[in-house]
Design a protein around this nucleic acid. Structure first.
Length: 482
RNA sequence: GUCCCCAUCGUCUAGCCCGGUCCAGGACACCGGCCUUUCACGCCGGCGACAGGGGUUCAAAUCCCCUUGGGGACGCCA
């Protein structure tokens, strides 16, 4: 795919790969955009190249500062950093003007005064003829001078082909008859997309463009622009798009599509990154990747060509796996906000938090689930689960629980091994099975019938709190006649 | 409508470029079982795909063509 020949031929500056991510700030950063950013970022990082962030806000009417901030926020959370920028196209109009002037001067562009009604009529006429709807070239040879309200069009060749050498798909041939004289400058003097990107990529020396395959049809136009401007054409790689479960292009109706929504739902950025990159890229049978592995192993030649369906369930499973594999110290700061929501303020590095996280890691698919599971460590139970009480707070269990509590009070070591020995001695003495002893204790400690393993949990909770909770439960049992 | 892209289990994919080792491998989901103090984790097993048709070849998931299906673009949006 990206073979040696292609590299030597296309990229003249051999020592650095320069990629970019150019979002237009018309909303939050969505899943698809994040994936594109990720591919470019990974490719640059893998090759020790440069990654540029550029805000494409030439459409002043639709661009907002809130969107810009939301994009920064999302990229920051994902840990996608940039080496250059952010550039704002809205601040580069002088540069575009200069290049447009060059195009007009060299006869590669011309002024056009056709009205939108006329344009609409042309498209209809072309369609009626069974052709691709396009501008018919009315003003092409008029040599119009700049006038109020005139646009500038690129004079594209009417014969021959333009071929896109795509690093992922190979060559894609377009007949130039399909490419019309597209507008490069609006009547208000602002540049249009195709012109602005090309000028930016030329001036920023971007030599590798990885983007969604919805841009394929723009590519021949851009190549024509590069040539007219006498610039080197960069290497293109069009990655397949992400679809919703109905195989339609991803949109809001497919559920949570903003990157930050996943932060709020308790996902780890590394899990989202892992999922997104695997949607379209593969490395043999490997499914789980750390961020470092991704940088090390990412390459363009294992990007598939077909569109993929976004599967939230697989993302969830991957998130669980990342939680399981993450260090407690790494999870703690990310968990804090979720605990805060429950009114729990914990010290990031407290032994209690570390222990709590350790016991919940294998049973939490999200940080929200983890926060729920961790809650009891910080809040002693105020009530006991109804069906648990009926089942486990029974008279015959009272005595063993008392004995266990006394025994725990006399125990120095509070590690899992010692705790197991203490339990064993009570079981031996009372003749009770493990479950008969463990379940009442679990209920006493957590208020619930479901929790982490009894020994790891007690070890994490600590002696004082464990005994206090057991005593409280004993009084409760005695008071209710259990 | 015109042009372009794509096509392996329900989904993400390995394999395809360099045909035989593939009666197609992994993962998610689902179903069984094991482990077990609860819930998970983990482990074992099951279900499940080369879109269809033509070629080429001793041999095709792999190469070629057609059909069908899906997606994208066609804007004074990006």
């Amino acid at each position: 795919m990206f073979n040696e020949i292609t590299h030597i031929h296309r990229i003249t500056n051999m020592d650095a790969i320069i990629t970019r991510f150019p979002p237009s700030p018309t909303g939050y950063l969505h899943i698809g955009g994040a994936r594109t950013a990720l591919f470019n970022w990974l490719y640059a990082r893998h090759n020790r190249g440069k990654f540029i962030l550029r805000i494409e806000d030439t459409d002043v009417a639709r661009s907002t500062q809130e969107s810009v901030d939301a994009i920064f926020d999302a990229l920051d959370w994902l840990g996608i950093d940039w080496d250059d920028g952010p550039y704002y196209q809205s601040r580069r109009f002088d540069i575009y003007r200069e290049y447009i002037d060059r195009l007009v001067a060299s006869g590669n562009a011309y002024y056009c005064t056709c009205s939108s009604q006329e344009l609409e009529a042309m498209r209809e006429a072309a369609k009626a003829r069974g052709e691709n709807p396009k501008y018919d070239g009315t003003c092409r040879e008029k040599h119009l001078l700049p006038t109020e309200g005139a646009v500038i069009r690129f004079k594209s060749p009417q014969m021959g082909n333009t071929v896109v050498e795509d690093g992922i798909r190979g060559n894609i041939v377009f007949s130039n008859t399909e490419i019309d004289d597209f507008i490069i400058q609006r009547s208000d003097g602002s540049p249009m997309y195709n012109l602005a990107v090309v000028v930016d990529d030329i001036t920023m020396e971007v030599n590798t463009i990885i983007r969604g395959d919805d841009h394929i049809s723009n590519t021949p136009k851009q190549i024509l622009l590069y040539r007219a401007l006498g610039a080197n054409v960069p290497l293109f790689g069009h990655v397949p798009m992400v679809l919703g479960n109905d195989r339609a292009r991803l949109s809001k109706r497919h559920g949570a599509m903003s990157v930050t929504a996943y932060r709020e739902m308790g996902y780890l950025p590394d899990a989202l990154l892992n999922y997104l990159v695997r949607l379209g890229w593969s490395h043999g049978d490997q499914e789980f990747f750390t961020r470092e592995e991704l940088i090390e192993k990412f390459s363009l030649d294992h990007i598939g060509k077909s569109a993929g369906v976004f599967n939230p369930e697989k993302l969830l499973a991957l998130n669980a796996e990342h939680i399981r594999n993450a260090a407690e110290e790494k999870l703690a700061p990310q968990l804090l906000p979720f605990l805060a929501e429950k009114g729990i303020s914990a010290d990031v590095s407290s032994p209690l938090l570390m222990g709590a996280i350790r016991t919940l890691k294998p049973r939490s698919k999200t940080l929200i689930e983890m926060a729920d599971g961790v809650e009891f460590y910080f809040k002693a139970p105020e009530t006991y689960e109804e069906k648990g009480m009926k089942k486990f707070f029974k008279p015959e269990g009272l005595d063993p629980v008392k004995q266990l509590t006394d025994a725990l009070e006399r125990t120095d070591a509070f590690d899992e091994k010692s705790l197991e020995a203490v339990f064993q001695s009570i079981m031996d003495a009372s003749g009770l099975g493990f479950g008969k002893l463990a379940q009442p204790v679990r209920l006493a400690l957590t208020g619930k019938t479901v929790s982490p393993g009894i020994f790891e949990m007690i070890a994490a909770l600590g002696r004082d709190e464990t005994i206090a909770r057991l005593r409280r439960a004993i009084s409760f049992m005695e008071a209710t006649g259990a």
